[in-house]
Structure formats: structure tokens, C-alpha cells
Design a protein around this nucleic acid. Structure first.
Lengths: 161, 161
DNA sequence: GGACCACTACTCGGATATCTAATGTCCGAGTGTTGGAGG
DNA sequence: CCTCCAACACTCGGACATTAGATATCCGAGTAGTGGTCC
């Protein structure tokens, strides 16, 4: 049950975008160069964020990506769902349909108590992710590492060369 | 981030084992036949449970698997970890090591605040899984579907034919 | 009749294929810019 | 000098390879039972 590495890329990239001047798009190539990532593949992940309405994309010269809304309105859950999809980690293949006393009309994803127990944990996970926003993360980082915003802006400026 | 289907198989199988007479091993073939699963592959999952000390295995005639300890001492987390492995779902590849101001001596899996946020959710998930035991599930099932224990025993008896 | 022994059938355990999904790459569609030509 | 236009360079978006991991299968090692044989 490994999460796609795109989630890590997306979270750090969203965080970086909060430190860059608003209203200005940054191309995927720059965002990728920042961490030495493959540009085309990061682009693919950013497309997923765009489809989810987390970032907005602009084509052509001076184009790129920027946050589609304020970082205080983007939760970690939003990003994870955008990359990984909305379905829960535990998949119930409705094994009980093959067992004794099975009722074909029942949806065991709802009534199966094993599923119910797993879903309880899944909900706790989602609740915790939804409780944290990109803005929260940014504030935590700025408190612990005050130099990070400046370093980030400088690094991006250097990449323009 | 899809969980292996082996988790569902393992949970339902552990539950079934609680209803069968204790001290008596059940071969993987019977456990698989119960839900129409591929026997060799379920066997593989049961081996993982055995390595984790959740079930004990016996070779030869009259051999098979049985719970290694009381169901009240087997949590959902135990089963998930046995099948999926102990590492958390979010994997931090320490992207920050490629960023500005990176310190090669720092373990960013610990200090990175993105990782920290994701780990918080992961811990909530694990806490919820650890709070539920196989015995709890069994009690829930017996309360909601009193016929299940009998049906299960009968089905296994029929499989001996 | 009892005890020992070899043989058989059964079961787990791990080594080996196959297949799906994540990872990585490439090229085309669209867009803003820019330079030049014409008025 | 200003305006319009056409060519260009840049960027996203999705289609197409490649690779890692999950899924599925198979065969060998070991064990308990069983039947026969010898004492």
C-alpha cells in the first residue's frame, strides 16, 4: 500500500507556489528543476491538480501553473485525493457474496462489518488530512525555518537564467 | 494507493478461524474454497500471517493453519502490517535534500514538516486500526447476524466431503 | 499379539511466471509575444 | 509614428513506452499417518 511519489511532489510544489508572487504562473519545467525532478512527469501530476481545481494552468509564453485558490482553502486531503483518487485504500471485493447465506441484493461494501472497521480507520485518516491546510504547513515551515521563503524565491530566480 | 486484496482475505479468514474449534488446524485449501479463492495465493498470504506470529502453521496430514493467539489479542493493525508491511503509506523521498539550503546530514523523513503532517494522519489511521481486534469484529458479527457462526461451521463441514 | 519400519498421502514454504498499474517519455494543439511591413 | 499581421517560441495536454510490484502458479521439503513385516 504505497502512495504515489506524486503526492510528495505535489505537496512540496504547492508549498513553493505559496512563496512565489501571486498572479504569476510558473512553468512545470521550473518547478521540476527546483528539486531535480523529471519535468514531463511532474507536469502529469500538476495536470491532476488542475483537474481537481487546486491549481490553474495557462498555456503559451509566460504560462504555467499557480494556485487556484488561497492556501488556507487547500487541505492535504484535497491534494492526496487529486493525485491518488477518491476511493478508500481498503478495497472490499465483497468476499461475503461467495460465502454461505449470501444475499445477491446486498451491497456488502456497506454492510460487511470488516469493511466497516476498515472504513472507520480510513475516515480517521481523512479527517486528519482535511484538518491541515497548505497555509498551516507554510506557517509551520516559516516558524521553524525562517530562511526558507527567501531561499525558495532566490532559487527560482536563479533558475530563470 | 490501493491496499492488497490479501488484507481482505486475511481478515475474513481470521474471523472464520475464530468460529472453528480451537486446537484444530485448517488447511489453506479449505480456507480458500470457502470463498472460492485461489488456494495457492491465499496460502502465500497465510504465510505472511504466520511470519508475523498471528497464525501458526503445521505441515503434513491433519495440518494447516490456526490462530496463534486469542482473537482479543489480534488487532486489525496486526493483520494489515503483516500483509502490507510496516512502512507508512506516504513515502518521503527526502525531496528537500535536492532543494536550497539542504543539509546532507539531516534525515528529512523526521524533520520535513510535510512528512510530519502526513505522518500525523498515518498515526490516526493506525491508532484506529489498533483499537479494533478480531474478537471485537466477531462480537459485532454475532450480534448483527446470529446465524453466521453456525453457517460457517456447516460450510466448512460440507467442504470436507 | 505387539513393536518397529518403510511407504504413502498430505501440507506448508518458497521459487518461478504473468499481468496490472505506476513511472517515465514524447509529440501535437493552442496561445501570447515579437518583429516587421504597411498605412 | 502607429496599427495590423504573420511567424515564432513557449507551455500545457494527452497519447505512447517502460519498469516495478502485485497477482497467480507450480514444485520440492518435511511430516504424520498407515499398513505390512518381523520378532
Amino acid at each position: 500500500m504505497r502512495m504515489s511519489e506524486g503526492v510528495e511532489w505535489a505537496l512540496h510544489t504547492c508549498l513553493n507556489l505559496t512563496w512565489l508572487p501571486a498572479g504569476q504562473a510558473v512553468p512545470a519545467a521550473k518547478l521540476a528543476e527546483f528539486y531535480g525532478l523529471p519535468a514531463a512527469y511532474l507536469n502529469k501530476q500538476l495536470q491532476a491538480l488542475a483537474r481537481a481545481g487546486i491549481v490553474s494552468s495557462t498555456s503559451g509564453p509566460r504560462g504555467g501553473f499557480q494556485l487556484a485558490r488561497g492556501p488556507e482553502h487547500i487541505t492535504l486531503l484535497d491534494v492526496v485525493v487529486a493525485i491518488e483518487g477518491p476511493e478508500e485504500a481498503f478495497r472490499c471485493d465483497q468476499l461475503l457474496k461467495q460465502g454461505p447465506g449470501a444475499d445477491p441484493t446486498v451491497d456488502y461494501r456497506q454492510s460487511c462489518l470488516v469493511s466497516r472497521g476498515m472504513r472507520r480507520a480510513d475516515l480517521a485518516w481523512r479527517r486528519e488530512l482535511a484538518a491541515q491546510t497548505i497555509a498551516d504547513l507554510r506557517a509551520d515551515v516559516e516558524r521553524a525555518y525562517p530562511a526558507t521563503p527567501g531561499n525558495t524565491v532566490n532559487r527560482f530566480a536563479a533558475l530563470r537564467a
